[in-house]
């Protein structure tokens, strides 16, 4: 039992091994290896055009790598498509918010719960009549601080609230790994700080891979940081190590920028 637990703890939730993807002569992902351990918040940073988005779409299963493997809880998922990976427990949010604009906040979360409870037997039942699911959905909204916004449609929500809702939608799927693609993008300082607090509260409960440009948020949240430049991981280390690393400063942070 203890052995099993130990072994389980040692297996990274996400492991990427020698991933490679090229579009013609452009090598977007160049021999990338990366691990996210249980409960770890791993940040992925890199300048624009470094290949972050290409890497994420490969992790999610939207595009296939040319070489390398993606392991999810030790299982090779390289050949699985996006929905199958989501069912295994890969939850994500998008760089550009992806929600159903005509649905209310709570309906978006319900959708996620319904998706998890798969089974095509009760395709004809009414999701809004399912008291247990409604209760669950309210709970998730509460967790991200949107308890009061449940009945407003997405179109009526502020940008920051949509980001929170997107996280609630991802959480309601009960993922094992959360992949957050620039959640702070387009946010004001205040909103960024409240989202940082939200992510802080999720830390340790989920393995999280955070792609983010907001360095304050990254440095505040990350256990480890990987730096991606021209499709290659040039460095992986703790916050302090990344701050001090000369190559990272040169390549990404810029020598003139005080850190």
């Amino acid at each position: 039992m203890t052995d099993a637990l130990l072994q389980n703890a040692a297996t990274p939730v996400l492991a990427i091994e020698g991933l490679r993807k090229s579009f013609g002569a452009l090598v977007a992902t160049d021999n990338v290896s990366l691990e996210v351990g249980p409960g770890e918040l791993h940040a992925l940073i890199g300048p624009n055009g470094a290949g972050k988005s290409t890497l994420i779409t490969q992790i999610c299963g939207e595009i296939r790598p040319n070489a390398g493997r993606i392991l999810f809880e030790g299982r090779d998922v390289t050949a699985l498509r996006a929905p199958a990976r989501a069912r295994l427990g890969l939850g994500r949010t998008f760089q550009i918010t992806q929600l159903c604009p005509d649905f209310t906040a709570i309906e978006n979360v319900l959708l996620s719960i319904e998706a998890r409870h798969g089974g095509s037997f009760d395709m004809l039942s009414n999701p809004r009549r399912n008291a247990a699911h409604l209760e669950l959905a309210r709970n998730w909204l509460d967790q991200v601080g949107l308890a009061a916004q449940g009945d407003r449609t997405v179109a009526q929500l502020a940008h920051g609230e949509r980001r929170q809702l997107e996280i609630a939608v991802a959480l309601a799927r009960q993922p094992k790994l959360l992949l957050l693609d620039e959640p702070m993008a387009g946010m004001g300082a205040e909103e960024s700080m409240s989202l940082t607090r939200l992510l802080q509260s999720l830390k340790r409960r989920y393995a999280i891979l955070l792609v983010e440009h907001d360095m304050d948020a990254v440095f505040a949240l990350a256990d480890r940081i990987s730096v991606l430049v021209y499709g290659r991981v040039v460095f992986t280390g703790t916050v302090e190590e990344v701050r001090e690393h000369p190559e990272v400063r040169a390549a990404y942070l810029g020598e003139d920028r005080p850190c």
Binding site: A82, A86, Q98, P101, R116, R173
Partner: peptide
Amino acid sequence: RAGADDREMVSALG
């Protein structure tokens, strides 16, 4: 309806 609004999200939900 969700698929009509947002194909990617529905697919990300499995």
